[in-house]
Design a protein around this nucleic acid. Structure first.
Lengths: 342, 342
DNA sequence: GTGAAAGCGCTAACAC
DNA sequence: GTGTTAGCGCTTTCAC
């Protein structure tokens, strides 16, 4: 673990009686070094417990093997599951991570952030914060000048950039269709805040399923929550008032569904007899709600992993073949998990 | 956002007709530059949309304004809440974060990790992974040679290193005392896995509270879980068998408590009438369990923030006064939140 | 196969 | 106040 005065490539070279170049070649596993020299240098590296300075290498190579990651809302389980996928795949591929968490979900102050990443020579950026309101306005303005590949998570298709996202629309549609198949006639929806793209997609999935089944999703069958259990409860009570005949509800996420279950029991509505409930996300806890929650599982870990893999692949292509990879829209299908709440 | 061929300090110097030093001085807000020159240089920086290379600065200054962060289990809510505290405080103090997530909680392969951080010149390290089994063996071996300040989270007091942790023992004791005050006579405990330091501390808190009240916590009044709802359920059913008179249970975390509530209802035990339940962690959802869960809230966000603040302060001291700060053991008190489950 | 020279972009130490 | 000279630790030419 070395001394205070770090041993450098120079120390190794001197002790081995070769030039710094030769040491560098050994370091980078170049073939134009005789086996004998290589052995000797390697041994001396060990003796001196020499380790190259990544920072000096980055400066010299103009490549850092670092990705910048932008996240938001780590105190919630979704973003951190995604981050977990990012860390594991990055580790696999030999990339380190420079992490920034936005102070708020809809932070719009991206320019300094991009600049910070750039000044640290990151090889690529993963934008793992959700699309909300106009917090993507900058993509068309800033992206063309940014000579660093970026992968966006969880946002609407856009021709210029590569995006990896769960198919929220289909997930919601499948969930609603499940309720329809169960014979429910009055299917309400509690959405996330509609300035979130995901919330809008899920609402649209619900509406579309109803429409295709010859039913309609009117305004009185829907109420907006804020993703939190507390907000879900408020929305649920509001919805019950304006839509008393409701016999099923598709809830925008599991945490709101949790409080729907609680509130429902509180007013004597049995689940699923009086009210079927389906959530979204498939968090681990949902299996242990009362009753266990039917939900749409989205694999956020995989989301992160795919994003990293795609980013690494774009970088490889750019370096090796000097090919700019075409923007892609990669979609991950969620999966309906049927439990007792429906 | 600049051109392909990055503008450097040299370009600015040339265009401004000064030396690179002067530009560097302006960059670092040194006072020994005439206002006139400073203005001119600044203007040229703007014109060229020049931004310094953090990586070159790091190499030259031997200081990176980066912290290394080691985490584990980001797919769980606890570690990510802590990470969230870390990111926000680091941002406040002007530090960036280099993130590594351990592949498993009890990973013992720390040497390459420390080396990686070191080669990236991090100014300090926050070890935010929990203490499990012997995964701290290396502290006494490796720490002396590591000339980078490290703050550890969530581990037993150890004289050589600075540690920030929730007071798990007291939290558990307070929880158990609460049950005693409620008149419960047969108070069981479902712990986390005992190779976790936190789990042992919480169990000890339970035992101590019982002892101080003249009761005893025997082996048959306790069962180990694995933090997960599923494991909690298994442990609960096991515990009921060997300790049928149980009228209260202190559960090692909220997620296991969740499944205890579910299982309890499943077998017709009313909560809190037949069985009082208290959890640990105070996750947001616990307020919306059926019934709402009494729990010990630990402020993990604050844990992260304190760790970062302490690390930054140690670094300041080291640089300014060349004082090596004495290792500290900083404890954060959790807080009992009483709800309907007790 | 190996070495010398130049450079990555910036700052510290010293001169003037 | 400002410029010059050396680095920081490594890699990339291009010789030999």
């Amino acid at each position: 673990m070395a001394d205070r005065n770090k041993t450098t490539i120079y120390d190794v070279a001197e002790k081995a009686g070769v030039s710094r170049q030769t040491v560098s070649r050994v370091l980078n596993n170049r073939q134009d070094v005789s086996d004998e020299t290589r052995m000797r240098v390697k041994q001396i590296m060990d003796e001196l417990s020499y380790h190259p300075s990544a920072i000096a290498q980055s400066l010299s190579r103009q490549k850092s093997y670092l990705f910048g990651v932008v996240t938001a809302g780590l105190r919630f389980i979704g973003p951190s599951r995604t981050l977990s996928g990012i860390t594991s795949k990055a580790e696999e591929l030999g990339y380190g991570l420079l992490l920034k968490e936005l102070a708020s979900f809809n932070s719009n102050n991206v320019k300094p952030l991009l600049q910070w990443f750039k000044s640290h020579q990151v090889d690529g950026i993963i934008w793992a914060a959700p699309e909300i309101e106009d917090n993507r306005y900058w993509v068309k303005d800033l992206m063309p000048d940014l000579d660093i590949p970026v992968i966006f998570l969880t946002m609407e298709e856009q021709s210029q950039v590569t995006i990896v996202t769960t198919d929220n629309f289909t997930g919601a549609k499948v969930a609603t269709e499940h309720l329809i198949k169960k014979g429910r006639k009055h299917i309400g929806h509690i959405s996330g805040p509609l300035d979130w793209w995901e919330a809008r997609q899920r609402k649209l999935g619900w509406e579309t399923a109803l429409k295709e089944a010859g039913m309609t999703g009117s305004e009185q069958m829907w109420a907006p929550g804020n993703w939190s259990p507390k907000g879900g409860k408020t929305a649920f009570l509001e919805l019950l008032t304006k839509f008393p005949e409701m016999d099923a509800v598709f809830v925008g996420n599991d945490q709101m569904a949790l409080s729907v279950l609680q509130a429902s029991l509180g007013i004597g509505k049995a689940i699923p007899q009086d009210l079927s409930v389906v959530g979204f996300d498939g968090i681990a806890d949902s299996e242990f709600y009362c009753p266990p929650l039917t939900t749409v599982y989205q694999n956020q870990d995989e989301l992160g992993r795919v994003a990293v893999a795609e980013l690494a692949s774009q970088i490889e292509h750019k370096i090796n073949d000097n090919i700019i990879v075409e923007p892609k829209y990669i979609t991950i299908q969620p999966e309906l998990i049927i439990r007792q709440s429906s």
